[in-house]
Computed example of a mutant assay.
Amino acid sequence: MKPLQRTTFFTALLLLLTAVHHVYGAIIYHTHWRLHVLFVAIPVMLLVYLLDRLLRKYPDSYPLLVCYLLSVLLFPLLIIGLYEGVYNHLVKNIVFLVTGNNSFFLLLFPPPVYELPGDFWFEATGILQAFLFYPLLMSFSKMIKSAIHYRKQII
């Protein structure tokens, strides 16, 4: 799979998982404000898919390439993968396992924004976002390197 295909695949997978994770969290924790992510994740996923298709049709379009890279970087990689997956779930669970529910944990993860780890599926889908961050980051990095050195290999 080429970098463009791989990046689009992992972006879609991460955003679909995020949608499921937030719907589930909104239901079990009675926090319907979590559904706001759907209003960004689904349009971004569709935008990335559309830009992927356009890049395949017009592989020499730098504006399309820049739009695609920014669309993947800003929301899927940084906000969902790094912040939501790695910090909000992976780090939260590690800190909780190491320190328990103490003042340090509450300083880093204050309620009501953060829930104490208590639901296996909610935490598992959240941590899975962190694990999807890595292959997306690697694929995105290869795409950036290809774009700089061997632009034709992206598509």
Rank of each mutant, 00 (worst) to 15 (best):
T7N: 07
T7K: 11
T8G: 00
F9C: 01
F10K: 03
A12R: 05
L13E: 04
L16Q: 02
L16F: 09
T18I: 00
T18M: 03
H21Q: 02
H22M: 08
Y29D: 07
W33R: 06
R34F: 13
R34D: 00
H36K: 03
F39W: 07
V40I: 15
V40P: 01
V44R: 03
L46Y: 07
V48G: 04
L51Q: 12
R53F: 07
L54W: 13
L54N: 03
L55C: 00
L55D: 04
L55V: 07
K57L: 12
Y58R: 13
D60L: 11
Y62S: 12
P63G: 03
L64F: 10
L65C: 03
L65V: 04
V66L: 09
V66H: 12
C67D: 08
S71V: 09
V72I: 02
L73P: 02
L74W: 14
L77Y: 10
L78E: 08
L78A: 12
G81H: 11
L82R: 10
Y83E: 02
G85L: 03
Y87S: 00
Y87Q: 02
V91K: 05
K92R: 13
F96H: 13
L97Y: 14
F104D: 10
L106N: 09
L107Y: 14
L108Y: 08
L108Q: 07
L108N: 01
F109S: 09
F109G: 13
P110N: 11
L116E: 06
L116M: 10
G118L: 07
G118Q: 12
W121G: 05
F122P: 00
E123W: 10
A124R: 14
T125E: 05
G126V: 04
L128R: 00
A130W: 00
F133H: 09
F133M: 10
M138T: 12
M138P: 00
M138Y: 08
F140A: 03
M143P: 04
I144L: 15
K145P: 01
S146H: 10
A147G: 15
I148A: 13
H149G: 13
H149Y: 14
H149W: 11
H149C: 05
Y150C: 14
R151L: 06
I155A: 12
